[in-house]
Amino acid sequence: MEELQRIARAQHGDDQALAELLQDNYSFLMKYLMKVTMNPTLAEDLTQETMMKCIEKISLYNGESKFSSWMITIATRLYMDQMRRKKVEERWREQQHAFKKMQWQLQHQQEAWTEAIEALAVLGYEWRLPILLKHYYGYAYDEIAIMMDIPLGTVKSRVFNGLQQLRKELKQDEQENEEG
């Protein structure tokens, strides 16, 4: 069944259509949140919370973007709210075992754990989010601004400055590897 038909049916109360929509997008959303949060437990929690929001707000989906983009927008805002409220990232950085657990999980899921992903983990979420959305998922700057609910210029600045920080981090890692 075509996604648009499922959406229309879900908006009219068809629980099966809604369940299929969420199931079709679960893996995509979870992988996105794993990269954004760098924390498997937090990614799982946010995925579940996003799914609940989608269930609650399905009637508000207007079709202006892809359904998966709508879900990413919800997930992104939930993550940003949580980061502002609880300052989870600062505590996570103190708990390096979560980082090692994520590395282990990704390696066992046959996903590449690249130096770039490791360097991304060092960045604050304010820079990591727009970089992932732009360069990994291919969203346009204006789409990212909407998803993150920040001005377009801020998105461009964060992508530019975040990439500068990434390059610096990767260059330092390369020099350390050459010396060590």
Rank of each mutant, 00 (worst) to 15 (best):
M1Y: 09
E2L: 14
R9T: 02
R9W: 12
R9I: 01
D14H: 07
D15F: 13
A17R: 04
L21P: 01
L21V: 04
L22G: 04
Y26C: 03
K31Y: 11
Y32M: 10
K35E: 04
V36W: 04
L42R: 05
E44Y: 13
L46G: 03
T47A: 08
Q48S: 09
M52F: 09
K53F: 08
C54Y: 01
Y61Q: 10
E64G: 09
F67Q: 10
F67C: 10
S69V: 04
S69I: 00
W70R: 01
M71N: 08
I74R: 00
A75D: 03
A75P: 06
T76V: 11
Q82G: 12
M83K: 13
K86F: 08
K86T: 11
K86I: 09
E89I: 03
E89C: 02
W92T: 02
R93S: 07
A98C: 09
M102G: 00
M102A: 08
W104V: 07
W104D: 11
Q107N: 14
H108V: 04
E111V: 09
E115N: 12
L120N: 00
A121E: 13
A121W: 14
E126Y: 01
W127T: 01
P130S: 07
L133N: 00
K134W: 11
Y136A: 07
Y136S: 09
G138L: 02
D142H: 12
D142Y: 07
I146G: 04
T154A: 10
R158H: 15
E169T: 12
E169C: 03
L170F: 08
E176A: 14
E176D: 14
E179G: 02
E179A: 12
